[in-house]
Design a binder for these strands. Structure first.
Lengths: 204, 204
DNA sequence: CTGGTTGCATAACGCTGTTATGTCAAACAT
DNA sequence: ATGTTTGACATAACAGCGTTATGCAACCAG
């Protein structure tokens, strides 16, 4: 698993082959089959590892008196996790289809479990009156899809000057909070406040 | 090209192999190299075809007196195009990495060219006073990344009940317009009005 | 000590993209 | 009209991929 993670992180998805893994581990390709039941099983294990790392990032975000600031920080943590493990993120969401392998329905369900943190935060935003009336789970999905899209295009190097990923991301954070019901002033303040928290809380 | 497009659409990315293509075309694999310089060239040609189809969808959206309604319709057209050509869309944005092939920087630039339609519409929304002060190109990028993320997760079957893709999409359209500066009432009206236009203008 | 089970090395099969070689036909020049 | 040259394509091979059948060797139970 460690070797597979290192190969994926250092050299990308195409380096994650049974033969390469066997050579690197000093064994034969059969080890992959006895331990993971094939490459699909190994990739599945990697994906689970990826969601665990995402959950780790989320768990670093504290609950403060400003739930919108917390929510924005969750978004920043999401992007930070993706940029820290770009190849792993690509595998998690099909950005790299390794040998036609695709996740099962329950694997996808497992991934969506990490959304629970976002749903909880959305609930707090609603209760604080910062978001307009709405479904916390629906709002969480809207934020997720939006940030996921930005991160995906950023990793694919589609976002370049003058609309680089960082600029679009900052503007999007404000727009998403306003779209959820917050005022422009309050959202701008919370987004700004979350900027420093990324270093102190998440990156720490 | 026609055979490649049909193979990709009917059987997905893994069916798009040089040998399969040669068998289907009644020739040898060398034809791929003389005509496209390899599989990379063929995939590149497919991607260009994909962006052309996206542009076709965009061109069907008329400019009306309600620019926000037009903008929402562009979003619907974008999603409609992706759902009509799911495998092609996956290849366009790296959702299916065929043999480690990746687009060049200028290929990505070509893809971004289709954003011009969205930028123009954003400019009209700004001039009409429906969007708050802002950069039309930046707004276009925000809308693009958001809709792209939703479509990507929808094609990956990550969006299931009760937050299915359709429901998240409708809510997101309103939120994005509000996030860009429109009022909730006006945005809701324009989103509702665009719903019927999808059938009459885009699907036609 | 013996019998069974488990883990992995070896080798092979079918698949992939790619390429060197050869052949043949079309196009061009004289 | 004829000789030449260029180009496209078929054939076959190479390296790599995931996967699997076979066999050996180590461990564990009785």
């Amino acid at each position: 698993m460690d070797i597979a993670a290192r190969l994926l992180a250092d050299e990308g998805p195409q380096a994650l082959s049974a033969r390469r893994l066997a050579t690197e581990a000093g064994s034969s390709t059969m080890a992959v089959y006895t331990n993971f039941g094939g490459m699909s099983g190994l990739v599945r294990a990697m994906v689970y590892e990826g969601f665990a790392r995402l959950q780790d990032h989320f768990s670093k975000v504290a609950e403060t008196a400003d739930p919108v600031c917390d929510m924005v920080l969750l978004g920043r943590a999401y992007r930070h996790n993706a940029l820290t493990n770009p190849h792993l993120y690509a595998v998690m969401f099909g950005g790299a289809s390794l040998a036609g392998f695709s996740l099962s329905a329950e694997d996808r369900q497992y991934g969506r479990y990490t959304l629970g943190t976002v749903v909880a935060c959305a609930t707090r935003c609603l209760r604080a009156g910062r978001f307009g009336v709405g479904d916390a789970e629906l709002i969480a999905h809207q934020l997720w899809t939006a940030v996921h899209g930005l991160v995906t295009l950023e990793l694919g190097e589609y976002l370049i000057e003058p609309c680089d990923a960082g600029r679009v991301f900052e503007a999007q954070l404000v727009a998403l909070m306003v779209g959820a019901g917050d005022t422009l002033q309050a959202a701008t303040r919370s987004v700004a406040a979350s900027r420093t928290r990324l270093d102190t809380e998440v990156r720490a």
